[in-house]
Design a protein around this nucleic acid. Structure first.
Lengths: 141, 141
DNA sequence: ATACCTCCTGGAGTTAACTCCAAGTCAATA
DNA sequence: TATTGACTTGGAGTTAACTCCAGGAGGTAT
């Protein structure tokens, strides 16, 4: 039950490299509360712990891949920082966003089908055109 | 093989209502070439034909549901307006976007799973807390 | 000690995609 | 004929989410 000490910590340059996010973006995320405040060394320079990196990873995923709204994530982080009393609220927030995401995936899947249909029709049209070129169309010459 | 005449045409207000897009957005889409120029009456007022509406529907779907980039759609419309010579190019453009969309859906599906796992862990943590409250924690009183 | 590198902050600038607005036209109505 | 209301345009303003920058500080290599 002791606090976990882990040996490794990373500079902002390394984190930026590792997660393919610019240093500016990392600082920006922290500034607006999209990730909790990162650990600093005595001269105020960020020193990302394992934990900090996990936040970066999580937030990057939720933003770039899932497209969750920044606002919801800021709220999530704020709740997290308030401690265990907010466990239930945080869970509900995640469920809400999970459901939105599921809806979005469904909508996109429908659109994918629509695109596929359209592409299929293009295929047919093009084949038809080619057939016409090889037969009747030659009469024009 | 004659040109198709269809009786009905709609005002911008009606189209806006029907597709839940603001009039400004409809004009903006047309302005930037995201839909082909809409028919006008003699005094220059837009009068959306069935065909115009289909474009609106298609573009709305590709933008809002699939999130295809405006640029790609503008190019698609431009190619369409150039006629049948661009059939193949248009098809390829659609396939490219279709594949991007499929990738995105896959990524989002993975993220959905990740969210579900996280929610599941919250569930467990909360249940554990409750159990502790009902047993040992009471010793504090 | 000078130069250099990486980092810091606060704030301004950028981009995409709308969204709003002012000034004007046109057709129908009182 | 004067007013009303829906429509027009070109251009300015907004929003979200970064992205860039100027000016400055700390630690290290020459």
């Amino acid at each position: 039950m002791g606090k976990m000490v882990n040996g490794m910590s990373m500079s902002i340059a390394e984190v930026s490299e590792k997660f393919d996010l610019s240093q500016d973006t990392l600082r920006y995320y922290e500034r607006i509360g999209l990730i909790p405040p990162v650990n600093r060394n005595k001269s105020g320079i960020r020193s990302y712990t394992e934990e900090d990196c996990k936040w970066v990873d999580f937030i990057k995923c939720m933003r770039q891949s899932a497209g969750l709204p920044v606002e919801a994530l800021i709220e999530y982080v704020a709740l997290f920082r308030q401690g265990d009393d907010t466990l239930e609220t945080r869970k509900e927030l995640l469920i809400e966003q999970r459901n939105r995401l599921a809806d979005k995936i469904e909508e996109m899947t429908k659109t994918l089908t629509r695109l596929d249909d359209k592409i299929e029709r293009y295929e047919q049209t093009i084949v038809k055109k080619e057939k016409m070129l090889r037969t009747g169309a030659n009469r024009a010459f």
